[in-house]
Design a binder for these strands. Sequence first.
DNA 1: CCATTTCCGGATGTATAAGTCCACTGATCG
DNA 2: CGATCAGTGGACTTATACATCCGGAAATGG
Lengths: 142, 142
Amino acid sequence: MLLNQTAEYAFRAMAYLASRADLDSAVPSAELAEAANIPGHYVSKVMRRLVVAGLVSSQRGHGGGFRLLKEPREISFSTILQATDLDPRNQRCAFGFGQCDAERPCHLHPAWSRLKESFNGWAESTTLASVHDNPEPWKDAP
Amino acid sequence: MLLNQTAEYAFRAMAYLASRADLDSAVPSAELAEAANIPGHYVSKVMRRLVVAGLVSSQRGHGGGFRLLKEPREISFSTILQATDLDPRNQRCAFGFGQCDAERPCHLHPAWSRLKESFNGWAESTTLASVHDNPEPWKDAP
DNA sequence: CCATTTCCGGATGTATAAGTCCACTGATCG
DNA sequence: CGATCAGTGGACTTATACATCCGGAAATGG
């Protein structure tokens, strides 16, 4: 619930990119797969979305790989979710029917709005800079 | 995202049960399917979970159906989520690996905790009583 | 009792997400 | 240039959630 598998991968990959000392060096997909615990052959699928969304750049050939296009603190979780087609902004009301909206709300619409607002707030106010909030390095994971 | 399809059905079914004037009369699955917009043959699957969880009772035979076992205000969204195997309390950290927990948190664990706390708070503080917050009746949906 | 109603639950089918595979393209280095 | 490296993207397979089907069991009413 909350996040799907592909979004999780995207977050971990982005967090890994943001956690490295040299943000300008390229990280090949094999390293990303290992570091962010993403199935080897699935990395390219995940990263492609982030490239298309303009969050990371990709480079082919020797010495190529992926790198962040912005500062970690400029990349909100919301933009990562948008890149993985989970844009929290256009989620329909889970409780009403197709036509439930602000003008013709269902019985539970206020409850839905509260949830959505709090999720949106979280996604927009949290950025990759929070990678540095926590001292535990990724490498500690066995 | 946020809620899966089965959980949505469960919420709508529960909301319909809570919305009726006579809470003690039984509602057959055919009526639930119609009212809560659940695929006809899938209603029993959804309702079974709610029965097992002790939120509703079921009765077979003529005049049978489902009815709430508690007052709407006693039924929190959290208990409905638990009934549909989406217990928000035991969701692992989406950002860390398998071994990410409070003692050995990953880089993004604080961000995850904030999200989880806010979701838990919402699910526990919202009840089916909120069905009456909104004047729009379900029947208005074409 | 018997007929009917309604839930029960396993077996089965379908849609979508997740994951794999591979031939291709572009970049780099010697 | 030729060898190698690394992302690209389409085709394919697998896993999981969603949905359907149907025989059966309990409850009710006549």
